[in-house]
Each structure stands twice: as structure tokens, then as C-alpha cells.
Amino acid sequence: MSKVYRVLGLMSGTSLDGVDAAVIETDGERIHAFGPSLTLAYSDQQRSVLMDATQAALSWNFLGPPPNIFAEAEDALDDTHRQAIRELDAGSVDLIGYHGQTVLHRPDQLKTLQLGRGQGLTDQFECPCVYDFRSEDVAAGGQGAPLAPIYHKALVERANLAGVTAVLNLGGVGNVTIITGDEILATDTGPANGPLDSFLERRGLGFDIGGAVSEAGLADFKIVEGWLTADFFQRAWPKSADRYDFDVIDDLAQASVADGAATLCAYTALSASRTIAQMGRRPDRVIVCGGGRRNRTIMTMLALELGCPVQPAEAFGWDSDAIEAQAFAFLAVRVLLGLPNSFPTTTGVSTPTVGGQIAYPSSSRGSRGGE
């Protein structure tokens, strides 16, 4: 029987709202048990530093020496993740999966950058840490995203769902996994909460978590159709995107807050539904995770566009707020065992790729491999 590992996964998404931490027990193929989880919000100062680092990365674009603010951002990032680990109080774990913070993603240049020092977590908690999950896939010609599909497959198998299941994650950027038996198809779909959050922040408001702001508005579908002619939507899948690939909010300068929010919700829903149609598999159900599942406007629009049941992850007993952190715990075990995390039908990489670096405690440093 395969060894079952108790693993702590850590995730910080492009929405920059905080750190998700979660524990699962897995052998790298199946989920044996779910453990505790939590979300730790960034302080205003930490979020400001991470936003500044992201803006600096966009200007840098891998040309010349990295901006000095990256070191400051890594300090803030590592400190918050250490605090999340302490607050979770998960007890003993065999392994840590540390996603880090994506500040620049340019697969067309064969480059991607996630800040976060895996060795620092390893040395403090005296536990091996897997990090830098995306670089190897990108260097091999893959999109480097999405990486959660193999975990989505494990979730669907655990729930004994037959037929065609689409798992749609709506974070800063949207991505979808379509699972039919052993077949896994995946791609980024386009914008999710990123443009909506930026729009509301510019208007001096917080997140439209329940969809109350957008629910009161009227979407401008003419503008949305124009946005959907962008290069990203014309490319074949699998494809990946950066949150700032969908920087459209200047087009809403004359819109009311409610109408602008509704228009951005329509942008999310239509980009997701059209990408799913492009993939050629008609889902029997769509399971939505990520912050977007809480937005009633997005969920209603998705149901109208997709013509099948659209339900939040909680309807299947999944903890949506923890799924991405759980995924990187699952992926960490696969890296340890030399099992692939990305595939031609999920990132476009030519052959299945493991991805990820392993940092070992100073007393037992070694190379990647099974135990």
C-alpha cells in the first residue's frame, strides 16, 4: 500500500486578499482525508508591498536586474505564510507545498516568477518544502497553468461523480478543468474577480462578495463582446493568463458603479462559458470554486450561459476556500514521488512534467525522489 503523507499546502492568489493554508492526507493519487484549513488576510501594508512588487514586475518584464522591491515583498510573503502555519496549528506534517506569489507570468517568453523562499520555511519548521511549481513546465514550453487539474480529478473521483464534470475556479483569473473518466482537459478561461476587484477599488469600494453591487446594475454586453475579441480569446487552449492581461476598467470610466460591476461579471461569465464550449465537452454539471462562487450575479449569468446545473463547491462537500491550498499539498507529494503535475491537455507542455523544487532541512538535504 502506498505511503499516505500528511501535507500542508499554502496558496496566495493574484487577488492578493490573503494566504490560504490547508492540510490533507494523500498518497499523491487519492485524497485519504481532509485536515484543518484557514485563510489569513494580508495587512494593508503587506498587500500594498505585494501590489507594488507586481506593478514593478510588469515594468521589469524579465529585462535587466530584478527590482529591489522583490526582496521586501518576499519578506512580507514569507512572514505571512509563517504566521498562517503557526495559526493553523496543524501538528506534525511530512511535507509543505508552498505556491508563493505570482508577480509575472510570461509563458510566451518561457518565463514565470513566483516569489517565496521555500528554504526559509523548511529551515524554520524543519520539514521538506516543495516550491516553484510552475517554472519547469514553462521552460518546457507549457503554459505553467493551471496546475490544480490533477487535484480536481482526485476531488471528482472522491465524490463519485459520473459523466462530464467541469470544475471552474474563479480567483483573480478563471480556470476550468473538465473531467471525463481518466480524461483531464484544462485551461485558463480569462478574467474572474481581478478586474471587478480593481474596478471597485478604484471607485473606493471593497469586494462585491455577495454580488449586491453588480446585481443592481445592467451589463453592457456590447462592451463585453468587444473585450472578447482580444488575442487571449482567439488562441487555442490550453492557454494561461495573467490577471493584468484583462485590464479593461478604463473602458468603464463613464459607467455607474453598479453597471460597471455587472458588465465585469458578464465578462467573467461569458469568457468562461465560451472557453468551455471551445473545449468540445458539454458538461453535465459545473462546480464553481474560488471567490467568484459567492457572487450571485456571476453564478446566475453562468447558469444562463452554460445550460446545465452550476453549483458552488460546498454542494459537494468541498471546502472551496481551501481547494487551491489543498491542491498544492497534493502536488507537493507528487513532486516528491516524481509524479507529473502538468500534462499536454492541461498546460500544453509536450510531455507530462513533474515541476517543483524541494528544499530539505539542512540536516537532510538531498535531491528529489520518492521515499
Rank of each mutant, 00 (worst) to 15 (best):
V167I: 15
P146H: 06
R365H: 14
D17P: 10
R334P: 09
G97M: 01
R293K: 14
A166E: 11
D132V: 12
G369V: 07
R6T: 15
D231T: 14
D52S: 14
G118K: 08
G307L: 05
G144T: 06
D251T: 14
C127M: 08
I69F: 07
D108T: 01
F343A: 11
A303M: 00
G118R: 11
V130W: 02
A192S: 13
V164L: 00
G142C: 02
V103T: 02
G369E: 08
G194M: 10
G370F: 06
E183L: 14
P146R: 00
G120H: 10
T268G: 13
S12V: 04
A236S: 09
T102S: 15
D251C: 08
P283G: 12
M279V: 10
W60K: 13
N68K: 07
Y42H: 11
D197P: 10
V156K: 00
G18V: 04
S362K: 10
D321Q: 14
S342H: 02
V164H: 13
S48V: 00
F221A: 15
L302F: 06
L302P: 02
S15F: 05
V176Y: 00
S37E: 12
F133Y: 11
V23P: 08
V23D: 04
L170S: 11
R202A: 15
S43I: 02
A277D: 14
V49N: 03
F34T: 05
A253G: 10
D20V: 10
T189H: 07
A56P: 03
T297I: 07
L155R: 10
Y98T: 02
A41H: 13
A313Y: 04
G120A: 14
N61K: 02
L339W: 12
Y42I: 03
T229V: 04
Q114Y: 03
A90M: 10
D319W: 01
F133G: 11
G144H: 09
T346C: 03
R202N: 12
V310N: 07
E215Y: 05
G355L: 03
F125A: 13
L304H: 15
I223H: 01
L336K: 12
F207Q: 04
F125I: 10
I287L: 06
L185S: 06
E136R: 05
E371G: 11
W237M: 02
F246Q: 03
L264N: 11
M279C: 13
A57Q: 09
Y98N: 04
L161P: 00
R82Q: 15
S214V: 02
P191L: 05
R365V: 10
L205D: 06
